[in-house]
């Protein structure tokens, strides 16, 4: 499974968001109504799933689905 597919699975497992509803370049807050606590929960699960040892605050600059994909590709 590639990073995008893994992320889509996490979005569904954590927030029940279907892959079809994700607009990759749009703000997660605006397009999917993801609030700050949901973002923290997503980030914690992403860190666990990808085995990352980084502070959760590192994700602060990621606004969209593609931002997260890009960030993960950079650090992995």
């Amino acid at each position: 499974m590639n990073i995008e597919d893994q992320l889509k699975k996490i979005f569904f497992d954590v927030l029940e968001i279907e892959a079809d509803d994700i607009e990759p370049d749009k703000s997660l807050a605006v397009s999917l109504g993801i609030d700050s606590t949901e973002m923290v929960e997503l980030n914690v699960v992403i860190k666990k799933s990808f085995n990352l040892d980084i502070p959760t605050s590192t994700f602060k600059k990621t606004q969209s689905f593609n931002d997260i994909v890009k960030f993960l590709k950079e650090i992995m």
């Binding site: 606590t37 949901e38 923290v40 929960e41 914690v44 860190k47 959760t56």
Partner: peptide, 10 residues
């Protein structure tokens, strides 16, 4: 610490 869901707060 990171095992706790942030939803717990609310």
């Amino acid at each position: 610490r990171e095992g706790v869901s942030p939803f717990a707060a609310s």
